[in-house]
């Protein structure tokens, strides 16, 4: 038992939940491309609002997502600072030999906005798609690689197993962390070395447990004659419906029309 984990699938019956995993993967990829290409403020804000709208309409907990976003604040801040100091331009603040520039601040802010959109986009994909469907969707897109004699089915088996064990791993990490806390590990110590040593006390047992579990699982699969072959039943369960076509059209229009317009407007 425990709290909700970030990116964990949340059961629901909204339209986003019902979409084909392939649709969602394509839409996400398109969104990633458009976020990367565009540097127009209005367009990025529009995408941000769109993400919030999707989160609300699929009845995900927006407050929880925003709260978890707060946890990556250090990462976002470092991004901003690096951009601000390393971009040449009109100086705003000078410390020693390096100076913060106006252009750098703008670029940094845009990058933060981009990261937030990407973060939300990937959360929507993960939180509305079961791991099984997600790996089936990925398997579909990887199929052409099979013609080049790449072991696609092995790869997707690995993928779905790791999706399956992620929550277990999280749970185990929490238990071990609590157990080490009970022996006086200081995970919130202000001293970095103490903190690193405390986390070593979690990572080492966690690795050991995962390795032995992987060995056990491999043996269990072997003993039940696992061979790598395409899972036709799972693949055939994927069906594109009307709503998928609509969603794809909608996102394509936003990306194909939005990106050139936002570039032209500059």
């Amino acid at each position: 038992m425990g709290g909700m984990k970030l990116g964990q699938y949340i059961y629901g019956d909204s339209m986003v939940h019902k979409l084909d995993p392939r649709t969602k993967i394509i839409c996400c990829t398109l969104a990633v491309i458009s976020v990367m290409v565009s540097i127009n403020w209005y367009y990025l804000f529009f995408l941000l609002l769109l993400m919030v709208a999707i989160i609300i309409s699929s009845r995900l907990n927006l407050k929880f997502i925003l709260k978890s976003m707060y946890q990556i604040k250090t990462f976002l801040l470092i991004t901003l600072l690096f951009q601000a100091f390393l971009t040449p331009g009109q100086a705003v603040l000078t410390i020693g030999t390096i100076s913060m520039t106006r252009e750098g601040l703008i670029l940094g802010s845009i990058n933060i906005l981009r990261l937030i959109i990407l973060f939300m986009c990937s959360l929507i994909l993960l939180m509305t798609t079961t791991p099984m469907k997600l790996s089936t969707g990925i398997e579909y897109f990887l199929q052409p690689l099979g013609k080049l004699n790449m072991p696609v089915h092995n790869f997707t088996t690995i993928l779905s197993i790791s999706f399956r064990f992620l929550p277990t791993l999280f749970e185990e990490a929490t238990i071990i962390k609590n157990a080490q806390k009970s022996r006086g590990s200081e995970f919130d110590s202000p001293q970095l070395m103490v903190k690193i040593k405390s986390y070593a006390a979690v990572v080492i047992p966690l690795f050991e447990a995962s390795l032995s579990r992987a060995a056990d699982l491999g043996e269990a699969m072997d003993s039940r004659c696992y061979t790598s072959h395409p899972n036709q039943l799972r693949m055939n369960s994927l069906k594109m419906k009307g709503q998928d076509v609509l969603a794809l059209l909608f996102v394509s229009v936003i990306v194909l029309a939005g990106v050139p317009i936002s570039i032209l407007m500059k």
Partner: peptide
Amino acid sequence: AGLVFQYPEHQIF
């Protein structure tokens, strides 16, 4: 209050 968790052998490092 010393708490020994279930399967404490899993925390050895």
